[in-house]
Structures are given as structure tokens and as C-alpha cells.
């Protein structure tokens, strides 16, 4: 019970802090991914098929998740660590795992807002879709966990704020552009294709696209994303310690 209360407190502190950071959040979670959707649609062809448009929307949802979970969350964790705020948590008898879980809760809240808004935006742009909501929610949840894990690892290992924020920014955007998210995998050179399809964003985009088309066949992607989430979070949790040697 105490642990749950601690997690909610960390979540609320981040939520309150967001009052002055709502602009950058909207930019990362909604404006940028929406612009990418329109950009991809514009450059693909004048008559992009419904399936292609679904891929673009799936790509934008994953782009939003990546920016909020790796770049934004990583930035907040780095800010806490390098501005001394982390000391407030570390000295308050809070368990490091509760601290990270509070951030994960915050990331879920952001992901829910962003995904819902982007789905509505898709409808607004005339995209016909009947998303299967439960699998979509599962895919989004696992993607957030997996990507947050990467953010936590970078925030814990970075030697400076500058290094950390550069890494989270590069990874947040890079994982989307390196993976076949906005374009089919066949467009990539052979050597890169195999690697890029192993990226978490590739699995996430494939799964989101499938669920947007109304299908439930995302079992394989869910298993892989679960595995990636467990590995990245386990690593992230193990690196987040209050005590130094």
C-alpha cells in the first residue's frame, strides 16, 4: 500500500511539473508525429492506399511513443539526476523501484493521451479504421515499457546532462527512422533490413498497424515486445540505485 502511494506521489509530482512544460509535451507527443503523418502521406503519392495510410498513422503513433518514452522521459530523469532533485527522492526513504514506477505511470498517461489524440486525428484526416482496442492497448503498453526502459538506462548511465539528453533525443527519433515504420522494409538495403526489423519500434509499428486494421493477430509482436520490455526495464531498474560505491 505504501509502495503504491509512493508511486502515485512520484507520478503526481511529474504531472504537476508538466504544467509549465505542456508546450514541449504537445510538440513531442502530437504536433511532430502529426506533421510526420501528413509529410509521409504527401511524399508517398497523391493516392496513398488505405493500408499505406494506416502504416503512416501507426508510424506516427510509434513516433509519439518513442519521443515521449525515450526522449521526454529520459530528459526528465536526467534533469532530476543532474539538478539535484533526485536527492530529494533518494533521501525520503522512497525505493528506487517506486521512483521508476512513478515515471512509468506518467509515461502511460502521456501515451494514452497521445495515442487517443492521434487516432482521433486520423479520423479527422478521413482515414477509415476500426481498431481492435484491447490488442492496441496491450501493444502501446508494452511498447511504452520497452522504450521507457531504454530511457531509464540512458538516464542512469549518462556521464553528464548534455551527453544524456543528446542520447535520448538521438535514440527517440533514430529508432523510428531506422526502423521500417513509415516505409515498407523492402525499401531498406539488405544489410540494414535485417537489423532494423529487430528494433522495438519495428515490432511496435507492425503491431499497431495490424490492430488499426482491426486484426487481433499480434501475438508474436506482443511476445517480442514483452521480452524486450523485461530486458530493458530489468537493466534500467538495476542501474537505478540511491547508494553509490
Amino acid at each position: 500500500m505504501r509502495r503504491l502511494s509512493d508511486i502515485v506521489c512520484v507520478f503526481r509530482i511529474q504531472l504537476m511539473s508538466m504544467r509549465s512544460e505542456i508546450g514541449p509535451f504537445l510538440l513531442a507527443a502530437l504536433v511532430f508525429p502529426s506533421a510526420m503523418y501528413l509529410f509521409a502521406k504527401a511524399v508517398s503519392s497523391t493516392s496513398a492506399t488505405e493500408q499505406t495510410q494506416l502504416r503512416f498513422l501507426a508510424g506516427s503513433i510509434v513516433f509519439s511513443l518513442s519521443l515521449t518514452s525515450i526522449s521526454w522521459l529520459g530528459y526528465l530523469l536526467l534533469e532530476n539526476r543532474f539538478t539535484g532533485r533526485l536527492k530529494l527522492f533518494a533521501t525520503s526513504a522512497l525505493a528506487p523501484s517506486s521512483y521508476i514506477c512513478g515515471f512509468l505511470l506518467f509515461a502511460f498517461a502521456q501515451a494514452s493521451i497521445a495515442t487517443t489524440t492521434l487516432l482521433l486525428m486520423g479520423r479527422l484526416f478521413g482515414l477509415q479504421m476500426r481498431p481492435s482496442l484491447l490488442p492496441l492497448a496491450l501493444v502501446v503498453t508494452l511498447s511504452v515499457l520497452c522504450l521507457c526502459g531504454l530511457g531509464v538506462v540512458i538516464a542512469a548511465r549518462a556521464r553528464s546532462f548534455t551527453e544524456g539528453s543528446l542520447l535520448t533525443d538521438a535514440l527517440g527519433a533514430g529508432l523510428v527512422f531506422l526502423a521500417p515504420v513509415y516505409y515498407p522494409p523492402e525499401m531498406l538495403p539488405h544489410g540494414v533490413r535485417a537489423v532494423s526489423q529487430l528494433l522495438p519500434t519495428a515490432f511496435a509499428a507492425r503491431a499497431v498497424e495490424t490492430t488499426l486494421a482491426g486484426s487481433y493477430h499480434v501475438g508474436a509482436e506482443l511476445i517480442v515486445l514483452s521480452f524486450m520490455a523485461v530486458v530493458s526495464l530489468a537493466f534500467g531498474f538495476s542501474l537505478t540505485r540511491w547508494r553509490e560505491n
Binding site: I13, S17, S20, E21, G84, R85, K87, L88, A90, T91
Partner: peptide
């Protein structure tokens, strides 16, 4: 602690 930060918002 020394050099602790606060949440400005």
C-alpha cells in the same frame, strides 16, 4: 543534502 534541487513548477 548538499546541492539538492527543488521542483520549480
Amino acid at each position: 543534502p548538499q546541492d539538492a534541487g527543488v521542483f520549480g513548477s
